[in-house]
Design a protein around this nucleic acid. Sequence first.
DNA 1: ATCTCTTTCTAAAACGTTTAAGCGCGATTG
DNA 2: CAATCGCGCTTAAACGTTTTAGAAAGAGAT
Lengths: 349, 349
Amino acid sequence: MKKKIKKTSLADIAKALGVSKTLVSMVLNDKGNENGINADTQKRVWAKARELDYKPNMMARSLRMGRSNTIGLIVADISNIFYARLCRAVEDAASKHSYHVLFSSSDENADKERKLIQTLRERQADGLIISTTLEEKDVDKLHEQNVPFVLVDRFIPNSKTPFVTADNYGGSLALTEHLIKIGIEKIALFTISPSHLTSITERARGYKDALLKHNLPFHPELIREIPYDDIKNSVRRELTRLLRPPHSIHGLFVSNNNIAKATLEILEDLRLRIPRDVSLVCFDDIDMFRHTDPPITAVAQPVERMGQKAVEILLDKLKNGKKARKKDQIFLKTKVIPRRSCGSFLRKS
Amino acid sequence: MKKKIKKTSLADIAKALGVSKTLVSMVLNDKGNENGINADTQKRVWAKARELDYKPNMMARSLRMGRSNTIGLIVADISNIFYARLCRAVEDAASKHSYHVLFSSSDENADKERKLIQTLRERQADGLIISTTLEEKDVDKLHEQNVPFVLVDRFIPNSKTPFVTADNYGGSLALTEHLIKIGIEKIALFTISPSHLTSITERARGYKDALLKHNLPFHPELIREIPYDDIKNSVRRELTRLLRPPHSIHGLFVSNNNIAKATLEILEDLRLRIPRDVSLVCFDDIDMFRHTDPPITAVAQPVERMGQKAVEILLDKLKNGKKARKKDQIFLKTKVIPRRSCGSFLRKS
DNA sequence: ATCTCTTTCTAAAACGTTTAAGCGCGATTG
DNA sequence: CAATCGCGCTTAAACGTTTTAGAAAGAGAT
């Protein structure tokens, strides 16, 4: 019925040529010379391999060699442009070293993430790159299971875990100061849950320190947490509340591009204009912020470098054992990109 | 030195319990009952497995079973929001059937794509989903090698190859008509190379037929091909040329979101405004088109369904053999989303 | 005639699974 | 009391590699 066409294996080539599998394997791995295989025999092997359209079976090879040349990558959501870029960077960097990448989206869900880690390990990923939503103790457990891994975008404070992240604190400080310098002082901050993520706490810390630095009052109730899975409704609720007394904010700092999108949408619904009714800044710049109405001031992260660095560190760990090194904890510089979403006048009056 | 901690295998559990690997395997695969394994023994196996933190080695399993539960997915560029969404959809659909996805970006480069296909096959992907840039004969070759695969976004005309694509023709026809109805008649089309892709040729065909349908002149020289790897410069060149006599276009139809972005940028550079100086419409809607200045009229594609359907068809092929069926060639409905980038007045005068 | 050294190649084990075939034994049947 | 059956389990092969250890054969040395 359904004719199962067997793929050609080393054994097939060996049999066809009347030599051993060993020989064929050596030749096709370019170890023919170092094993003193006759040049002519080598040619015959190559020819036959081509003739039979031989393709090595990586599963068998990995099984035997105990390594798969695969990296597992876990991000919150690969359809978010930030992670999509990160994935691409990781893919490119990995493929330079002939590694492949197994992507997965965790949706910021710790359970799902744990399962994904498990699966990736079952699939014998040699190492993991994770934009983790886990807490310290989970990550410690990962260490015990001695899986080589590197965190991206977020990190675990006071831990030896290697990571590559943007300078979320510095970026947020600068971004908030940008608002303050323009004269905007009542600034709310929309963070995203789960809120223990350092990418988020650090942004909040930067925001707070900027206020303090400029002797402005810090009101904890101006920091609002937007749940990852209900962004639009939360933004609507918080925004309408904050824009009227007693808060009457003048500026809004949103912690990621998804919240920014929702904010634009809600403001439009409410017939409110940026920056007339509120100034907006966003952590994480995306292309289209240049073309929105108005263009949005944002902090740009070096996403591509982030991916590259993470791969670099991971592969280094894979090669040279896994002693933690200080220089494997990396903060990348960010950059404020001023655009027109902040007005340019003092509005305290 | 670097202590290699062996992972626990079936054999370890078997030895610890004084039973055979077979038994352990059966129990852990939930085939204990159907193989009449004593309930108590089953419990002991599970307990020991947990105790030793057993994780099955999927490489070994795949090797033995001849299938990896992995789907290979090749797109042009995973950092393009369209493909990122597609990837996410494929990931979700696949994981529902406990398949994993191995993504790769081909950069619209046929050679790279061929290599990726090869690699994915070496890695024993059970099937492939490809947004292909290959030509018919390459795809035929793939068939011969009897790899199950499904094309997405693009298809091969007059071929039995299964595919899932948006109705590029219908969408483009409608989008062009949208312009025409507003009174815009001199419309240029920016396609993207490589231009043999049906996703592109179909869009051109829709554009042309819309003109003919409304008895408007069709000028082939108004169709400009923008190379994938040099979008910005080409757009600048073509745009400046087309906006002045003798062409003096009033409308511009761009074939994907990347070209739209570049167009927005260039127009800004040139101090030109949409729709005052030119009307703009885009095939493929992205979130941010709602918030650009002005919001951009676009054709939305059901990307998520596209991914789902592709997975569905592929998995069906994997299960039920590979006879080509008519209903495995799918065109998905698109939808014009009118926004303010087209003006709303007759401008022929 | 034996020993040793190259050169070229091979046998067999190992990686961790799944699966086809079948074994030992007590209970049931005729 | 022999034959049969079912239960609970095992043996061994197989998947396609890589790798370790060593073999066959001819050449040169003694």
